[in-house]
Design a protein around this nucleic acid. Sequence first.
DNA 1: TGCCGAGGAGAAAGCGATTTCACCGCTAGG
DNA 2: CCTAGCGGTGAAATCGCTTTCTCCTCGGCA
Lengths: 333, 333
Amino acid sequence: MARRSSAITIADVAKHAGVSPATVSRVMNGRFLGEPEVAERVRASARELSYWPNQRARSFAMGQTNAIAFLVPDLANPSFQVVLAGLSKAAGDDGYRVMVADSAEAVEDEPLLAAEIRRRCDAVVLCAPRMSEAALVQATEMLAPVVLVHRFSPAVSVPTLTVDSRQGAEGLARYLHGLGHRRFAYVAGPSGVANENRLRGLADFEAFAPDAQIVHVPGGAGSEQGVAAADEVLRSGATAVLAFNDLVAIGVVHGLLEREVPVPEQISVTGFDDIPFARYMAPSLTTASVPQDVLGELAWNRMHALIRGETPEHNVIFQPRLEVRRSTAPPPA
Amino acid sequence: MARRSSAITIADVAKHAGVSPATVSRVMNGRFLGEPEVAERVRASARELSYWPNQRARSFAMGQTNAIAFLVPDLANPSFQVVLAGLSKAAGDDGYRVMVADSAEAVEDEPLLAAEIRRRCDAVVLCAPRMSEAALVQATEMLAPVVLVHRFSPAVSVPTLTVDSRQGAEGLARYLHGLGHRRFAYVAGPSGVANENRLRGLADFEAFAPDAQIVHVPGGAGSEQGVAAADEVLRSGATAVLAFNDLVAIGVVHGLLEREVPVPEQISVTGFDDIPFARYMAPSLTTASVPQDVLGELAWNRMHALIRGETPEHNVIFQPRLEVRRSTAPPPA
DNA sequence: TGCCGAGGAGAAAGCGATTTCACCGCTAGG
DNA sequence: CCTAGCGGTGAAATCGCTTTCTCCTCGGCA
């Protein structure tokens, strides 16, 4: 029977070059140690027949795909996108590709989704800031090798890249306090470790500055929620707003300006993350800067070590850098 | 000899359930037509042994991976990210995953990169706005099935999703002309079809409005270049700026505001794309709105049809919608 | 009762690489 | 001169699943 597919196989090349498939395989993978002349003949045949090894067959035979998965709650979120860009670039330099999966914020589906995509790849970079501890423990076991991004848990022992949101939030608050602000509004994010850590940072700050008051305003993770929070921010009487992240901050600023409340003259606003737009909006946004692309890159470093069977370096906790821009100023007299 | 890998295979399940591997395969894939009781027994065994089919083996046996590639010049560009999000979501709903590759604007590497990633996937969505015609023709032949995004070429006959930049640019210019502007600056993008089409649109506009003058200012694709163009924009004496895209527009606005030139009172600025931030910046950006997520979704529709061997619907050319916001106003008196 | 057709299930042949192991010829050492 | 060792090469097993093809059984009809 004729071959099902019409593609050139290693056997065709072997026949054409007058060698065995084993030799072709060795030449194609740079593991050939014999006569250079033989290798050249094989390469010539491959070129002539435009032979490209079938990746599916290779993956099968070698038991690995040279691809990793990247699972995020929301691919539309710029900070995850930057992580993805860094990850993809770093992995690409080592011949690995990144397959993406977006859980669309459906936290309960994440373990299944992760398991599914893991079966197609050699490993997974898990960005699951809101997954429950229990699910996380189970997931990291099933999914190994795993690298965790934007999520830390003492219960798991996989490489972890996180941001010290606690310190970041505290730093932002202290900075505002230093400008003279005493009444703050915190526009919260969705429940999860990120939000909790910011709250811890604010608690640290309150301990440090007993004269400060922080009003908590419900928010979310996107700019729409920031806009929606503007009214309550105004009602709070705060002179400084700490937003969950840059997206929310952008929404808050937008909402305030729409209501003709000047920023920062009347109310100062800070974000978190330092997404690319933060510096370009008007007023440019004071924020806690996190190098998300580096985070993606380091995630790959850790992953690559794991895949090679090495023990990767320690977890890293990024210290956000206070990036002072124009959205903050002393409170109105 | 003991099995190399310790994972449960279809044979284990077959033995456990007292049936043949063929039956297990049929049950797992919903192609089993025999006794429901047998199917249930197989499912029970699979559950008990926590059996998951080896995807590499499946891909190999079936000759397909259920994954598609998405090649972009720059994963950090928000408009591509939105396309990716839409594509990934739509494909995911049909059980397909998206593998990303970023050419990092290295146009000459794109054909090779595309070929490499194509071998790992069943198809590729190619976003190559700057690839040469010749390379494009060759690439689309080698890569089939292919869907082209943000790139049209009469020389290829693959499904294509594009934006009518020409009409979009003309619409923006006419709108500004209607506001009373007569002297325009166009901050150009990187050479490529996108830029060329905007130029055509501006030429259409000039034919329509002979009293208008357009000064061309070199730019780029990112906000930095927009900022950098601000001085030359000022020097041009233009009262209205058409920027290559939103990113550039954001940079231009930022640059102008930094130089204390009020937007839109002194100079109006427009973008192109309507990225999520356009509505939140201050002033909010007047732009030609393109539903990039829908574009990604439709790209998947076309691709899915292609994969199933159907003939997909016609190419679509999105007509950008003029989105009037606050960055534009009549010229100063 | 006998035969035929249909349908359920298994045996086995791929899929296309990698990789182990065996073989062969040559060289060097006893 | 014989043999042990080694480098170069090929034969063949292997990876785990899908799918075809065959076989067997059972029911219906003459």
